[in-house]
């Protein structure tokens, strides 16, 4: 299982607020940013469009994606994620950018 950390607003949308903010998703096949977010959206349909634009499939501009101390926001979404993420040892972090008032 892959651990995904959601920001507060997405925890609420997913109906899991009040906990740790981590959810576990299962990915069959290569573990990539695309497959992890696909699995997340399948498990929590209210998150459709909240991380990636629904029409273009691109990351929303004020959402950042991190893992293992690296900013993966602009990486190819089909590049395999680090083994530590695939094994569940390290989380995949979805972060709301610091912006606005």
């Amino acid at each position: 299982m892959i651990r995904v950390k959601l920001p507060l607003h997405l925890q609420r949308l997913a109906g899991i607020d009040g906990g740790s903010g981590f959810v576990s998703v299962e990915v069959s096949g290569p573990v990539t940013q695309r497959s992890v977010i696909d699995a997340l959206e399948e498990q929590f349909p209210t998150l459709l469009g909240a991380v990636r634009d629904r029409s273009s499939g691109r990351r929303r501009s004020l959402v950042r994606l991190y893992a293992c101390g690296e900013d993966l926001s602009n990486e190819d979404p089909d590049t395999p994620l680090p083994e530590a993420v695939a094994s569940g040892d390290e989380p995949y972090l979805i972060v709301g950018a610091i912006a606005g008032g």
Partner: peptide, 8 residues
């Protein structure tokens, strides 16, 4: 809605 996470 937010700029961050779009429309609900």
């Amino acid at each position: 809605v937010t700029e961050w996470f779009g429309q609900q």
